[in-house]
Design a binder for these strands. Structure first.
Lengths: 91, 91
DNA sequence: ATAGTATTTAGAAATATTTCTAAATACTTA
DNA sequence: TAAGTATTTAGAAATATTTCTAAATACTAT
């Protein structure tokens, strides 16, 4: 909800890397954490930011929470960026 | 130079609005400032951030500095976003 | 129920961002 | 050269972000 939230979420390198990991498919918080030199608490914080920006969603299964990419919001910001690129005197 | 810089620059509403204003053509720092309820110093700060992110460039003319959109970097981040969207198991 | 694993929440410290005022710089023109 | 306009820089205050440790929650399986 809102470009600020989306762009802010994308501005952190760890969060961008999380999205890239999720490109290949769903991962648990623990799996994600294993790619970083950060505590689980910090990973959880970044996942929360990504979730709030609607860039990922979660699904619980057994003892795990799996995270997946949500590309809907990405399409919206692509549109915003396109409008800047294409835009001329008459927009 | 670096997605972090670009996304961080785009995460501020004032800076996004500046880019939208520049869509229509070059504007001086003062012209830009007249659209906001902020001091000139603050506008100058935001312009510096956008400049550092290569989202705008300036050209001096008479007593004014004119700012213009630079869409090159926008294309790069569109590519990064596209790669997330299209990406499947084999990327 | 108990113990174990996975993840989040709370609280605190360090750092970064945003904004202001006041002063400095740069350029123009009388 | 002096005065005026446009913009930036410096320094400080308020707020936000990122990270940690320690504790809490949630679920599983014995």
């Amino acid at each position: 909800m809102g470009y600020a939230e989306t762009f802010k979420a994308l501005s952190d390198p760890a969060r961008r890397q999380i999205l890239e990991l999720l490109k290949k498919g769903p991962l648990s918080a623990g799996d994600i954490g294993s790619h970083f030199d950060m505590t689980g608490a910090t990973i959880s914080y970044h996942l929360k930011i990504l979730k709030q920006a609607d860039l990922i969603f979660e699904s619980k299964e057994k003892n795990f929470i799996y995270y997946q990419l949500n590309t809907t919001v990405l399409e919206e910001i692509m549109l915003w960026i396109s409008s800047l690129q294409g835009g001329g005197k008459d927009d």
